[in-house]
Each structure stands twice: as C-alpha cells, then as structure tokens.
C-alpha cells in the first residue's frame, strides 16, 4: 500500500535545478533596556550577510561553532524568525514577501528537524497526534486515510505502526528523532533544514539517523540544509559545505574540495582541531588562540582577525568579501587570492 508519498522529483533530477537562493541575509537581535519605553541599546549581530544557493537533491552542510549564527540562518530561511534584511527565494517564490496565509501554505514544502529529540515533541501528544498534526493543519480530516498516512510515515522512518499510540517519553532519543523526521515528512516537503539532528544522540545511534536521512533523500528527492558542528558528520552527508564564523560564511565549496584544500585559516583550524580516532596520528595542529568574540560587538574588518595567526593590517580594517577563488570554491580572506588559492595563506 503506497499512497502518493514521494514527489516524482528523484527521477527527474538531471540538470541541477536551483531550489533555494539566499542573498545577503541579516538578522540583528536588538538588545533593549528600560521597562516602559524600551529603547535599543545595541544588537546581537547573529547573522551578518549570508548568501548561498542550493540545488534540488543537494545537501549543503553548514558548520560553525556556537555563536556562528548557523542555527539562526536555518530559521531565517524558513522564516521562523523574521530577517532584518536580505532575501530568500524558495522555488522561485520570495519567501520574505509572502503574507501570513501564503507562508503557512508554503510551510509544508519546507520543513525542519530539530536537535533536541526531547524538546521537539509535545510530551502530551501521542505519536499519532504528533505526526498527523501537519496534515490536520493543512486541511486533512481524521479518518482511515489519515491513519494510513501516519502509519506509512512511521514505517518510512523505521518505526512500527503500533508505536502510534504511545507517548514520546516511551521512546529513546534515536526513536524520538525518527518521530520528528516522520512529522517533517508528512506534507511531502522538498527542502528540510536539519538543525544538528544527531548532535544530541549517542554515537551508535547517530549513524542510524544519518543513514536514514540519506536514504530518505534518495527515495524522496529531498534537499537538505544540514547544520552541525561535527565536521565528520557534515563531511559524510553533504555535497557542499559552508563554514560560518560570527554570522558570516567564511568559506564554501564542494565537500571534497573543502576538506582536501581548506583555504580560509578558520576552516583549517577547525579541521585540525578535531580529535581523530587514530592514536599517534600526530597531525600538525593549528590551535587557535582565544575564544569566539561576542557577536554584540564583532571585531572590525574580518571578524576572524582577532584569532587569525596570519592577520595583517588590512584584515583589521576591511571586511573581506566572499569571492570565488577556484571554480565553485569561495573564501572570504584577504590572503587567499585566486592565484594563491593552491596554497592558501602562509605565515608572515
């Protein structure tokens, strides 16, 4: 029994078709003071001019440390947060210009999977109610058809249909994550923001969920924006990877290219910081000094210059643009010129 589950997308993907275009996205959270007449005393520049595009069936990995603005970016794209400025085009529609009702209708097509499998499910709703909810919101009525659809979704994500009657607390973290995925798939979305979907799971469960996400992508022709801080997982699942630092994308490239030839000093540091499960690997490690500065008053010029081992005067003054240094490989660093792109920046 297969109801119309998958859009026939997977079959038709030949020519890469752009599904999402994000341009110069900015989100400033105002910091206010005062009780009655609150006035703005500053702002957290969570996302500070982010642009990227995504082709159908592709996975863009978005990596960064806490405070990099990666999760905020995911929410801005879905307009779960209102951007301060910028534009988001989803399948030719200007998402930010949509009025409330139209936006609601579009929500089924762009979904989100959350990090915390405990917080993402309403503890007072059964699995059936949780997975059926998006369908109910979008006009379906309770009945045998709806039950069948929920059952189908549960089986799609590797749960059994008798799970439908249970409450979230009866499930393990990995199973809850599956429930969240089933809910996100209910309305046949084409694009899913995966916000650290495996970070809160145990190692042996992570792989199960990563595999599930990959299978679903293949089967349903999904496009992912995969947000994570674990570069290993991102490397595994992504087709392209973008690295964020303090609200900006500092480097974006095809996966193989980025991991083989990281150009931005931050990307290099990030890659070298990961402990490798191979004793005596003895790699050259770039240990960054200091910590990520506050996004309330980010450093002038290149946001990374305060920690960059290669920073020169120009970095403090001028904000480097994200420019193409090799085909499909963009980096935002003054020291990475298209001609030097082979080596990347060298120490002074």
């Amino acid at each position: 029994m297969s109801a119309a589950a998958a859009p026939a997308a997977a079959a038709t993907v030949k020519e890469p078709r752009e599904i999402l275009r994000v341009e110069n996205l900015v989100k400033h959270f105002p910091i206010t003071a005062g009780m009655f007449l609150s006035r703005e005393v500053g702002s957290v520049r969570a996302v500070d001019g982010v642009s990227f595009e995504l082709n159908e069936g592709e996975t863009l990995g978005l990596v960064g440390e806490s405070g990099s603005g990666k999760s905020t970016t995911g929410r801005l794209v879905l307009r779960l947060l209102e951007p301060t400025s910028g534009s988001v085009q989803f399948d030719g529609q200007d998402v930010l210009a949509l009025e409330e009702a139209k936006l609601r209708a579009l929500r089924g097509k762009m979904q989100i999977i959350f990090q915390d499998p405990y917080g993402a499910l309403n503890p007072r709703k059964t699995v059936l109610e949780t997975v059926a909810e998006p369908l109910l919101i979008h006009g379906r009525r309770w009945g045998p058809e709806l039950h069948a659809r929920v059952r189908e979704l549960l089986e799609l994500v590797g749960l059994a249909s008798y799970h439908a009657d249970r409450y979230p607390h009866e499930f393990s973290g990995g199973q809850r994550q599956r429930i969240g995925i089933a809910r996100a798939l209910a309305l046949n979305p084409r694009f899913i923001v995966c916000d650290e979907p495996v970070s809160a799971l145990d190692v042996s469960i992570q792989a199960q969920i990563v595999n599930l996400l990959q299978d679903l992508q293949e089967e349903l022709g999904l496009t992912y924006l995969f947000i994570a801080h674990d570069l290993g997982v991102v490397k595994h699942i992504s087709t392209r990877v973008a690295v964020m630092y303090l609200g900006r994308i500092v480097e974006i490239a095809d996966k193989a290219e980025l991991y083989a030839r990281p150009l931005h000093p931050y990307t290099r540091a990030l890659l070298s910081a990961i402990p490798v499960p191979r004793p005596g690997a003895g790699r050259e490690r770039v240990i960054l000094q200091g910590e990520v500065p506050s996004p309330i008053n980010p450093p002038s010029g290149c946001h990374f210059h305060t920690r960059c081992p290669f920073a020169v005067a120009e970095c403090r003054a001028v904000d480097p643009p994200l420019r193409e240094v090799a085909p499909g490989h963009k980096a935002a660093c003054h020291l990475v010129q298209p001609q030097t792109a082979q080596e990347g920046p060298r120490g002074p």
Partner: peptide, 24 residues
C-alpha cells in the same frame, strides 16, 4: 568494532555508515 565503524571521521569515505542496530 561497531562504535569505531559508525563514526564518520574526516578520512572516512564511502556512501553509508555502518551502524549498530537497535538501542541500548
């Protein structure tokens, strides 16, 4: 063995991760 295989490392290649089935 399962743990070691299921982690996607940086030098890991291959389409699928090998998993440990089931849960604790």
């Amino acid at each position: 063995q399962g743990l070691l295989r299921s982690i996607p490392h940086l030098d890991h290649e291959g389409a699928r991760l090998r998993t440990i089935k089931g849960t604790v």
